[in-house]
């Protein structure tokens, strides 16, 4: 059942609608479990659209196997997705810095508050992000220190390649995930792929993880997908490779491959002079899990991240 969580009138003959698809079990069940799948807070991140589609499709294929409630919110920032804009085009702000919001505030506050109200009571929430248009990521769960202990057992079920216990920006205090975790809805943030794109393989991998979680919570009686346990890393085991100067970055290794200490992973070139500015090397061996895809870089821009000792 497609329901409108909140709608806001735009100036000229249009409403912004936050919608969810509530999929109910066929048989009546006493106090059914409930999983909320949300995506599209950042309008330039499209990977989650395929995951929402595929979860709904697999349930529709075997509705008799569903013994809980699945709520799917594909587009929390619908105008952003329409315009490929990371921020909310109504406020020019990052919507994932506006939670928990305020039910009697301005439109941005009311939207955030209505989203929280609608998700509250779920047994688990999964918030799907993609990377941006600048770097490509392997499927990973990002956990903040605050909730790491409670969330780690759930994160292991997601079939992601990696769990990154980190305390930095993506797990900021005003995010949807932080607000929901505070309110006792265990919420996992997944990050994968790249902005403006859909990687079907990553999609299938995470959808398997979502059905694995549904099985674990007793909400799905269909076959349990085969999954693997992600590598677990802390901040100390991630090497950031940043550009030392401006130029064009060309990678020379594949994404999601092992690299050895001292190995060249790319080069920085200067298009006008035809000169190579420098080779980019890594200090430690490990898995290259983040790779720069947008070639134009400034000093400080991220070129790669290496997972060094989680295996």
């Amino acid at each position: 059942m497609i329901e409108t969580v909140l709608e806001v009138e735009l100036p000229v003959g249009e409403k912004v609608k936050i919608v969810r698809n509530r999929i109910m079990p066929q048989l009546e069940i006493n106090s059914p479990g409930r999983l909320s799948l949300v995506s599209g807070i950042h309008g330039d991140e499209i990977e989650g659209q395929y995951i929402c589609y595929e979860v709904a499709r697999r349930i529709e294929e075997h509705p008799e196997c569903l013994v809980g409630i699945v709520d799917i919110y594909p587009a929390l920032n619908p105008l952003g997705i329409d315009l490929a804009s990371r921020n909310n085009p109504m406020t020019h702000m990052d919507m994932n810095r506006s939670f928990p919001g305020n039910a009697v505030g301005d439109h941005a506050d009311r939207i955030s508050s209505a989203i929280i109200d609608s998700i509250i009571g779920s047994d688990i929430c999964i918030d799907i992000h993609a990377s941006d248009i600048f770097v490509r990521e392997i499927p990973q769960v990002r956990l903040s220190d605050t909730f790491a202990e409670q969330l780690l057992p759930l994160a292991k079920l997601t079939n992601a390649d990696m769990i990154w216990m980190n305390a930095t920006a993506t797990v900021h205090e005003s995010t949807l995930a932080h607000a929901l975790n505070i309110m006792n809805v265990p919420t996992l943030v997944l990050e994968m792929g790249q902005g403006h794109q859909i990687n079907r393989d990553y999609g299938h991998q995470i959808v398997d993880g979502i059905f694995n979680i549904l099985c674990e919570l007793g909400m799905w009686t269909g076959p349990r997908p085969r999954t693997h346990i992600p590598a677990i890393s802390s901040d100390g085991s991630v090497e950031f490779v940043r550009s030392k100067m401006g130029g064009l970055f060309l990678p020379t290794t594949e994404h999601n491959h092992f690299v050895k200490a001292g190995e060249i992973i790319g080069e920085l070139i200067d298009p006008i002079s035809g000169k190579k500015l420098m080779d980019i090397t890594v200090e430690k061996s490990g898995l290259l899990f983040t790779q720069r895809i947008y070639p134009v870089v400034y000093e400080g821009d991220l070129l790669a991240r290496i997972l060094t000792d989680a295996f």
């Binding site: 806001v8 735009l10 100036p11 301005d106 439109h107």
Partner: peptide, 8 residues
């Protein structure tokens, strides 16, 4: 000159 619902 434009107003969105719930603007201040």
């Amino acid at each position: 000159a434009l107003a969105t619902q719930y603007d201040i």
